[in-house]
């Protein structure tokens, strides 16, 4: 059942560009990776980073700058962007883990605005105008990826790699400790682990993956703007993750898809895209905290186990 679903998803992703505008699909893929990075923190460590956009945006600028000013190949530029974001993530983590829970969110929020401000003032970013004309250098220095359809498959492959990495982290012994920190931090500490170190590393990995998404995005669009660093994008990724299903691997993918398509549809109606985001986020928090994937899973489990009286998985609440 599960394998069939995965295969179906892969098949759909492979033929999708023949039916849907590939740039829209690539945008979705970038945000799938971005939302996955956010979910890694909130869903599996319980840390709400309210400034995830700083990692996306910074890396987009770094990747763009490398592509514009050097002959380095595409994947190196994107990885370099991801690396810079990972370093920033480690630093933000180092400072922010000093306060737990809600204050962590506030500190990361302030941090993101600081990064926004720095990028606004920096010469190389082009300030308010953003960074234009980012070339799409050859992949591995040999493959030409200027064709949109070809590039779609490259982006698809990169997305798969990023998700695989997140999957490996979550299902490693290290990921188990992260989940234990989420569920009962004092116990983890009493076992002799230092939760702070694990959190900082998780923050760095998450930032790196978000940066990877930012690099991809810069290459897809050929430009990078301050929007990528703004708090509306930091909020968008929260919506994607919660709407899709917090703490599930597929949730952020579904959420990213829905939100990007919705933004695309509502783009012509001025403020309504943001208003709709707000309303949906409210509804999700009040009524559907398991998100689309979580609710669907619970629905199927209830159907399967109607006779057996097996309790459906409940999301983490109230601690």
């Amino acid at each position: 059942m599960r394998i069939a679903l995965i295969l179906l998803g892969v098949a759909a992703a492979l033929i999708a560009p023949f039916f849907v505008y590939p740039v829209l699909l690539m945008t979705i893929l970038c945000f799938v990776v971005f939302a996955t990075s956010f979910n890694l923190l909130l869903g599996y460590v319980g840390l709400l980073c309210f400034g995830q956009a700083m990692f996306l945006g910074l890396s987009a600028y770094v990747t763009g700058h490398i592509l514009k000013t050097t002959d380095l190949s595409l994947e190196i530029a994107i990885l370099a962007g991801a690396l810079v974001s990972a370093v920033l993530g480690a630093f933000v983590g180092f400072v922010a883990v000093r306060r737990s829970g809600i204050q962590f969110a506030m500190i990361t929020f302030a941090f993101a605005q600081f990064v926004y401000f720095l990028l606004l003032r920096s010469e190389f970013t082009g300030g308010e105008n953003g960074m234009q004309g980012i070339p799409r250098s050859e992949l591995f220095g040999i493959f030409d990826v200027s064709d949109t359809l070809t590039f779609y498959y490259v982006i698809l492959g990169m997305t798969a790699l990023a998700i695989l990495l997140a999957y490996r982290v979550i299902h490693s012994p290290y990921g188990e400790i992260l989940k234990a920190i989420r569920d009962n931090e004092p116990r983890v500490e009493s076992l002799g682990f230092k939760p702070e170190r694990f959190k900082i590393l998780a923050m760095s990995i998450s930032a790196g993956i978000a940066g990877f998404a930012g690099g991809m995005k810069a290459a897809v669009y050929g430009f990078a703007t301050l929007t990528d660093v703004s708090w509306t994008v930091s909020g968008e990724v929260i919506l994607m993750t919660l709407l899709g299903g917090l703490g599930t691997l597929t949730g952020p993918m579904v959420g990213a898809g829905i939100v990007i398509v919705m933004n695309d549809e509502l783009a012509q109606f001025g403020e309504w895209a943001l208003i709709a985001q707000g309303i949906i986020l409210i509804l999700v928090i009040l009524f559907f905290r398991r998100g689309v994937v979580g609710e669907a899973g619970a629905f199927f489990r209830r159907r399967q186990a109607r006779a057996k009286d097996a309790p459906a998985g409940k999301p983490r609440e109230a601690e």
Partner: peptide, 25 residues
């Protein structure tokens, strides 16, 4: 009120989007 306090931060954030969006509109 009985859930993780992160939810209340998020719901007031969402309300901000709606309030600001409506006024701007």
């Amino acid at each position: 009120a009985n859930l993780d306090h992160l939810y209340s931060l998020l719901v007031t954030y969402a309300a901000t989007l709606v309030i600001e969006g409506l006024i701007r509109q």
